[in-house]
Simulated scan of single mutants.
Amino acid sequence: MDTKIILSVIWGVVTLIFLYGDVIRICSGDFTRMTGTTNFGQSVWLGIAVLMLIPILMIFFTLVLPQPVSRWANIIAAGFFFVFNLVGLPSYPSLYDKFLLAVSMVFNLVTIRYAWNWSS
């Protein structure tokens, strides 16, 4: 199978894992407990929106960017999300969150492996 298709599908899986975690967090009441009395401003919500848009856009960019650019975009984005989630992992109190983040981090490593070995 074509590497760009595999990478696009992986980004779709990562996006769904993030969304699934958000849905469970909202339904369980953990979102309210995690944010507490913190009132996020518009700039924080914009930052969250941009952050969560990256994996969604990677689905598209992986398919349309030239191979060398797509390869490095995948490595950089997956590496960023791996480190970001690794650093944030201890801040999540729920076991399901830690599990889903760990699964997404495995997919980040798989993305890096596929992109690293992707030859033109």
Rank of each mutant, 00 (worst) to 15 (best):
M1H: 13
D2E: 15
D2G: 13
T3P: 06
T3A: 11
K4C: 03
K4T: 06
I6A: 13
I6K: 13
L7G: 01
I10T: 05
W11Y: 12
G12H: 06
G12K: 03
T15R: 04
L16M: 14
F18T: 09
L19Y: 14
L19P: 04
D22C: 04
V23Y: 14
I24D: 06
I26C: 08
C27L: 15
S28R: 00
G29P: 09
D30P: 00
F31P: 02
M34E: 08
G36W: 05
G36S: 01
N39P: 11
N39E: 13
N39M: 15
Q42Y: 15
Q42C: 12
Q42L: 15
S43D: 13
V44L: 14
V44M: 13
I48W: 13
I48Q: 14
A49S: 01
A49L: 04
V50A: 09
L51W: 09
L51V: 06
M52H: 15
M52V: 11
M52Q: 15
L53G: 08
L53I: 07
P55A: 06
L57T: 07
L57C: 15
M58Q: 13
I59E: 08
I59V: 06
F61K: 04
F61A: 06
T62Y: 03
V64M: 11
Q67H: 12
P68R: 07
N74D: 07
I75C: 05
A78D: 03
A78G: 05
G79V: 03
G79H: 04
F80I: 04
F82D: 02
F82P: 00
F82A: 05
F84Y: 13
N85V: 03
L86P: 05
G88V: 08
P90N: 10
P90R: 11
P90L: 14
S91H: 12
S91V: 12
Y92W: 14
Y92L: 14
P93G: 10
Y96A: 00
Y96L: 00
D97Q: 12
K98Y: 05
F99P: 00
A102C: 02
S104P: 03
S104I: 05
M105E: 10
F107Q: 01
T111Y: 03
I112C: 06
R113H: 12
Y114D: 10
Y114W: 14
A115Y: 02
A115D: 02
W116Q: 05
N117K: 07
N117E: 13
S120W: 12
